[in-house]
Amino acid sequence: MADIGYRPERGLPQRFERPGALRFTFYVALAAFVLWSFQGAGWSFSALVSGGPALVDFLSRAWPPSAERLPQLAEALLETFQMALAGTVIGIIVSLPLAIVAAKGMTGPGIISRSLYSGSRLLIALFWTVPDLVWALVFVITVGLGPFAGTLAIDVDTIGFCGRFFAESMEDAEKGPSEALTAAGASKLDTVFCAVVPAAMPSFITTSLFALEKATRSSVVLGLVGAGGIGIELKVAMDFFDYQLAMTIILMIFVLVLCVERLGNFARNRILEGSPR
């Protein structure tokens, strides 16, 4: 571009703000911690390279996949998806009221409201931070081995996931419609259900479908601790070095998760463009 010869009187502003000494020290410490974490995690390029032949060996022994137990595996896969679906649906239903109470500004200023707000946030934080595998171990002890334990673990995990994101999306919802309904004399409950929930609905739908995708992946792993589904089949196949069967299971899981993801995308687009109510 040609130089037009214009020179601003006050010069150009700096592209970046120069950090202060404290901030600079923080950045350096953060970078050092990240590098240290690589060391702590045992990250090794040499191990990665030397593991290559073992991976090739595994793949050669796993190929072609075995079609021996296909009907039983299909049944286990269906059970896996059923666990994911039932767990997600119940999780979403429970998380919605919990998220309403846990979202800032949705409840009143009274002591009871504040207690409910704090309690619900704590519960969501607990469900969100403890991994689903831990919940599965707890529920295997509580209700015994099988898909019910897995479904409960997915319930709790979904409540934590959806509760957090539902609450955040309600907090971020445009305030104008709520103000309009408040000005018209609507109660807090009416305002939440008529203005806040519809405004947050796209986010609810997206979060719910992500929760289903997440639950589908989780339900595979939960089987490893005896919480039902195809996971246990994968563990047995690996333990018995039946890599061809393991490959079949891995491919089936891949197809299931891919289908759920694609269906989720399709449903998301259809629902978000849908007709009004």
């Binding site: 309009a180 004399g185 008529c194 009004p276 109510r277």
Partner: peptide
């Protein structure tokens, strides 16, 4: 300050919430 994603008719019905709230006015 209309509620997006819902119909014009539903938005107008919301005007009655001050007099009669509840699910039938949502």
């Amino acid at each position: 300050n209309l509620v997006p994603r819902v119909s014009a008719l539903t938005n107008v019905i919301h005007g009655n919430l001050g007099r009669s709230g509840g699910i039938r006015g949502w």
